[in-house]
Design a protein around this nucleic acid. Structure first.
Lengths: 195, 195
DNA sequence: CCTACCGATCGGTAGG
DNA sequence: CCTACCGATCGGTAGG
């Protein structure tokens, strides 16, 4: 018995459409059509189109944060290699669970109005800081090369976020296989190669 | 004497706005405002809003292709390391020259209607294939690890395209410094690390 | 969840 | 490059 609230069904349908066409190019009637109801009926469940966007963005933000929390807790006290691997794996898994919603978080937050926009930007910065911090740790203890932590974090985060551009949930590549491959690529990118 | 056509000024103003807000959220009047003229006056120079998008996307596609052509010509016959480094550097430079226009090519092509949309997708695929091919070469000659070329190419291309999300032309990071850092990260990500 | 409807804004045209 | 204007569509409300 899969019991989901109507509100959540609206957000899921909106995620698919926002991912495929973008927030601005998706009308309230498009979302309603996907649920086989009329546009104005949506407003029995949501206050505005932007509220739907905000709900998706904030839910995904929480998923990323909790996922990273767990990864950091599981690798507390370990070396930078283990910690970065856990962070990347957690992120890849969070993205592959629902690439549509993840892409809304990654790409569509800028359509939020203030103060929601600023708050979500702050959370994105804090999330990115987790990656920077691990890179700083790895630089200090000799695990990683002496790359600028900001550049390296941006490189890795845009790479993992880009998964939403091409990953197919019903494809032949499982979330775990992708997490394996991306964790390897990420770790090697910061590790001195054999001459 | 900087002589630019009005048509090109329209495309440049549109690039900035499409980059900042997205194509769908940018109105014809927004573009006109940026040039201090009225909306309808634009139509003396362009046939439609989508024509402006198509012109930007196609110009950037040509820049990327010519830049990659030069990189490949300069490294013909060399090993996969040298070839991939040249490709990444060429791409980073093409992006940093005009991140606004580059981001329109990367993110806004989906708003093109057929047949332009399909044609640009084909060109993107062909461009991505250059990266896959070098990775395949590096796998065969032992330069690179045995990662799936499709995954590795997607990883690298989304990382370099992500530069449009955060790079500031007037910042403290020069295109060459960024190309250095990204080429290193890219090469190491495919190269076996010391144990 | 529906029909009927609203003011605002959209891309674009006519005609100078 | 302008003003005046067009039909279509937008997000959203009223009132069942």
């Amino acid at each position: 018995m899969v019991e989901v609230t109507r509100r959540r069904e609206i957000e899921d349908a909106a995620s698919v459409l926002f991912h495929a066409r973008g927030y601005a190019a998706t009308s309230v009637r498009d979302i309603a059509d996907a649920l086989s109801i009329r546009g104005p009926s949506l407003y029995a469940h949501v206050a505005s189109k932007e509220d739907v966007l905000a709900a998706i963005v904030e839910r995904v933000a929480e998923r990323f944060e909790r996922s990273a929390d767990a990864a950091e807790a599981a690798t507390a006290g370990l070396g930078a290699n283990a910690r970065l691997e856990a962070l990347v794996r957690a992120h890849v898994r969070a993205v592959t669970i629902d690439p549509g919603a993840a892409s809304v978080f990654v790409d569509e937050w800028r359509h939020l109005s203030e103060p929601r926009r600023s708050r979500i930007l702050q959370r994105r910065d804090a999330y990115e800081a987790r990656f920077r911090d691990v890179i700083v740790q790895g630089r200090s203890d000799g695990s990683f090369v002496l790359v600028d932590p900001g550049i390296a974090a941006a490189f890795l985060l845009t790479a993992v976020n880009g998964i939403t551009d091409w990953y197919r949930v019903d494809g032949f590549l499982s979330p775990d296989q992708l997490a394996d491959a991306y964790a390897d690529l990420a770790l090697r990118s910061l590790t001195e190669a054999t001459p």
